[in-house]
Write a protein that binds this DNA or RNA. Structure first.
Lengths: 212, 212
DNA sequence: ATTACAACTATACCCGGGTATAGCGGGTTA
DNA sequence: TAACCCGCTATACCCGGGTATAGTTGTAAT
């Protein structure tokens, strides 16, 4: 197991939400010592009032926090916003808690006291995941934008095309002439910026996979 | 959250590996009461000597076992054999243990004493996953067999075709005439039982996804 | 009412995929 | 040696995707 070095995470952000000031202080020191950009919050409320930067990001959450449960927060948050990798830290955790956290996609679940390096490793993994996710989201965003630039008719035709239907068949089902469908297909290829049917197929798959 | 009913799992197998006879007895009763097919083993060794039936299957493992650690066993086993869903149960577990188990893909990690229904829910989830996996493996197996029925040349060409290359380009790179490539492509479509280029593309993606 | 635009259509044409037929050369088997 | 299979090739042909040009509708904006 090779350890990811912090160098790759220049433009990343670590967010800590913990009500214990001493923890925040200690983590501030730890992160600055390895050159990680970090932001500290004492409560979820504070964090929500903050506008996240447009970088890879990883959350470090205390499970037990004033007002709100860290686990509940993670689940709500990952539904409303883009899923952000979470590393849990806690002094008073139990097994069901950790299992629930891991089930809902947490990167790691550490009990205090933990080794600094364990936390860093988890954060590096989280940031890497966030980065990958951001890249995927960017390409999917492009694709979706292109797909939405299609007219209703074009979308209909595209959906049938990627199912392998021939222009003739599509024309029959939509009560159009074959030539109309062909023109439409050309328009689709242009708008989607696809150079071949295969590429269009892959685009459609990507769009479906996330929409699901 | 709706509970999956055991009816769907007529042709399934639950495997319990636990060195405590009283646990095995209790679980035997539980499973028979809900109509689940179950096999009990006192050790990993015993289990390995057994030939698994060709059905969906879910393992119930005690983490701490004589001789071998349940976690290590899970990781080794999932590498060597097809991944089989695992539900851990333990009396003396800790958080790092549970986190490690969940990270390596366990369905659930329960601490004794647990509610019968919780175990059953986890098992149903595991069996469902196993079933899905079996179906996927079956179709991939077909695909792979077809792919392996291709000649070396045909595989070369197919790999280039699904990358979107034209017959002309393929011919140039392989120092063949265009017509040869076309004939080859036809042969590929027949052997792979693909009716369109799109279908061939999807097949290739499926093959790649598992091979990775 | 005129203009403008969008969707649809027809004709004609080009290009690439795919097949059928047939021929060629090399290696294997009887 | 003869028969045979296999991979490669050539010719000719068919079909479907894709474009260009041009013309038809209907509809919405001025």
């Amino acid at each position: 197991m090779t350890r990811v070095q912090p160098f790759h995470f220049r433009d990343s952000t670590v967010v800590v939400i913990d009500d214990d000031p001493s923890v925040r202080k200690a983590l501030t020191n730890l992160f600055s010592s390895v050159g990680l950009n970090a932001h500290m919050f004492a409560s979820i409320k504070e964090f929500l009032a903050w506008s996240m930067p447009d970088t890879p990001i990883c959350l470090v959450l205390d499970v037990r926090m004033p007002g709100r449960n860290g686990l509940d927060f993670q689940q709500e948050f990952s539904r409303s916003h883009a899923e952000i990798p979470v590393v849990f830290i806690t002094a008073h955790g139990d097994i069901p808690m950790s299992v629930r956290a891991m089930k809902s996609g947490a990167i790691e679940f550490l009990t205090k006291p933990f080794k600094d390096q364990d936390l860093l490793d988890a954060i590096y993994a989280g940031l890497a995941k966030s980065q990958t996710r951001r890249e995927e989201m960017a390409t999917i965003g492009d694709l979706r934008a292109r797909y939405e630039s299609l007219s209703v008719r074009e979308r209909q035709v595209m959906d049938m095309v990627v199912k392998g239907q021939l222009s003739k068949q599509i024309a029959a089902k939509l009560h159009l002439s074959e030539i109309t469908v062909k023109v439409c297909r050309g328009q689709i290829m242009r708008k989607m910026q696809a150079t071949s049917l295969l590429e269009l197929g892959r685009m459609s798959e990507k769009l479906d996979r996330i929409a699901n």
